[in-house]
Amino acid sequence: MRVPFVKMHGLGNDFVVLDGRAESLPPIGAATARALADRRTGIGCDQLILLEAADTADFRMRIFNADGGEVEACGNASRAVALLHGAAARVETAGGTITVAPSGSGARVDMGVPVFGWSDIPLAYAMDTAAMPVAWEGLASPMALRIGNPHVVFFVDDLDQVPLERLGPEIENDPLFPERINVMVGQVTGPAEIVLRVWERGAGLTRACGTGACATAVAAMRKGLVEGREATVFLPGGPLHIEWGEDGRIGMTGPAEESFRGSFDWGKFA
Rank of each mutant, 00 (worst) to 15 (best):
F59N: 01
F269I: 08
I43D: 00
R2N: 03
I49T: 03
A37Q: 02
A256R: 09
P163R: 14
L139G: 14
A124T: 07
A130Q: 13
F5L: 13
G44V: 03
P142Y: 03
T211D: 05
R229H: 15
T253A: 04
V3W: 13
I250K: 02
D128E: 13
M8P: 15
Q161G: 08
E179F: 13
A140R: 13
D55V: 10
V109N: 09
N149Q: 08
T32N: 05
L164D: 03
P175V: 14
G12M: 01
E70I: 03
G148V: 09
P236K: 06
V162T: 15
A87E: 13
L145G: 08
E179W: 14
S103A: 13
I171E: 01
M61G: 11
E258A: 06
G262N: 10
A217L: 05
V153T: 15
L225K: 02
F5T: 08
Q161T: 14
M252P: 09
G237H: 02
L159V: 10
K268T: 01
D265Q: 08
E258S: 13
D157I: 06
P26S: 02
G190Y: 07
L123P: 14
M221S: 09
S24E: 13
G117A: 14
G245L: 11
F234Y: 03
E200D: 10
W118T: 06
L83W: 12
G20D: 13
E137Y: 07
C209D: 14
T93W: 07
L84R: 11
I98V: 11
R146G: 09
G10D: 09
G69Q: 09
E92F: 07
H9V: 08
E70T: 00
G224K: 04
S103Q: 15
A66C: 14
A231V: 09
A30C: 11
R222L: 06
P236Y: 04
R207N: 12
V162H: 14
L84P: 10
P102M: 00
I181R: 09
V153W: 12
F264V: 01
E70N: 02
I171Y: 02
L11W: 13
G168N: 12
L225I: 05
E52N: 01
G68S: 08
T232Q: 04
G29L: 04
G245Y: 03
A35R: 00
L50R: 10
D110L: 05
G186Q: 05
D265Y: 03
A88V: 10
V16Q: 10
M127T: 12
